[in-house]
């Protein structure tokens, strides 16, 4: 292990700061045919709900300039399937496992957290960008009161390190960050996708069946970086920075903004080796500049 690259997030020691972003990497099986999963700091798996979710109608994908839209609808076969099929697969690898969990009600979030509480996972990542069906479909992550409540509720059911993934669709990200920490978050992940839209002018209709979808890719990086920077200045818990990271230079920007670790998402679609190249790039940067550890540059931008 290279000590320079080691990163601790909420008590979990990662061999390097590069994680896969939820929803872009499945449970690692498919990308594991191309890259060595043991290289990764951690794998964050695709969102897991207590019951299977069917997902949204097609088309679910639209390309935009330097980015893409998705509206998958968190299709997943449910937590039992995850525990039986995906967890044992990932455990064969020398990497940490972060399980992204989702729900449409407080009770659904709690049920999946409770089911995973005794499982061999390293961290939970709470996706609070889902619509809360008990509050008229308003996303959990948009109101500090709801954020605190859902984090508190899930916290009650799990002793595992808990990261909360923040939605950027808010007026003040630092207010939401504080609410998550006050609810009991051990770490924060940000940002989730921004909502976007694309219209096919020839067919005169939205490209996505759901009309709108989550916008990701290099286009969102300046927004993500700004939010990570602001949140790191506001709260004391570690931040996993993400949003448009495609190169090691991008990753270093997030670390200099204060991120403890980074997650790579959409870049995997453009280049399945993106994570591996980013890890090598960061290592090279530290060596060339004779930097003894990531701590020396983390949050260096004031």
């Amino acid at each position: 292990m290279d000590d320079r690259m080691e990163t601790v997030v909420a008590g979990v020691a990662l061999k390097n700061p590069v994680i896969t972003a939820s929803g872009t990497f499945g449970s690692g099986r498919e990308y594991g045919e191309l890259i060595d999963l043991d290289c990764l700091g951690a794998v964050t798996v695709k969102g897991v709900s207590c019951e299977p979710w069917k997902g949204n109608p097609i088309p679910r994908i639209a390309e935009t300039q330097s980015g893409m839209l998705n509206s998958i609808g968190l299709q997943n076969p449910g937590v039992e399937h995850f525990i039986e099929h995906d967890l044992p697969f990932l455990r064969q690898h020398d990497t940490k496992i972060i399980v992204n969990i989702c729900g449409h009600t407080l009770a659904q979030y709690c049920a999946v957290a409770e089911r995973l509480a005794d499982c061999d996972v390293d961290m939970l990542e709470l996706n609070i960008s889902c619509p809360n069906v008990e509050e008229g479909g308003l996303a959990f992550g948009t109101a500090p009161r709801m954020v605190e409540r859902v984090v508190q509720a899930v916290r009650h059911y799990t002793g595992q390190p808990l990261a909360v993934k923040l939605s950027p669709e808010v007026t003040d990200i630092t207010e939401i960050a504080r609410a998550a920490v006050s609810g009991g978050a051990d770490a924060l992940s940000l940002i989730n996708t921004l909502r976007g839209m694309k219209i096919d002018i020839h067919r005169r209709r939205a490209v996505l069946a759901s009309r709108t979808g989550g916008y990701s890719g290099p286009g969102i990086m300046p927004v993500a970086l700004r939010m990570v920077y602001e949140v790191c200045k506001t709260v004391d818990v570690p931040v996993i920075g993400m949003g448009g990271i495609a190169t090691f230079e991008d990753a270093l920007e997030f670390i200099m903004a204060g991120a403890a670790a980074v997650a790579v998402g959409t870049a995997n679609f453009h280049n399945p080796y993106a994570t591996v190249e980013i890890i090598e790039g960061i290592r090279g940067y530290l060596e060339e500049n004779d930097i003894a550890s990531l701590d020396k540059i983390r949050g260096i931008v004031d």
């Binding site: 990308y31 695709k46 994908i61 998705n70 998958i72």
Partner: peptide
């Protein structure tokens, strides 16, 4: 045929 992102089964974009 369907719109795809990853092409290898990870993203669930191309559903049928």
């Amino acid at each position: 045929e369907e719109r795809m992102a990853c092409g290898i089964g990870a993203c669930l974009g191309c559903a049928v």
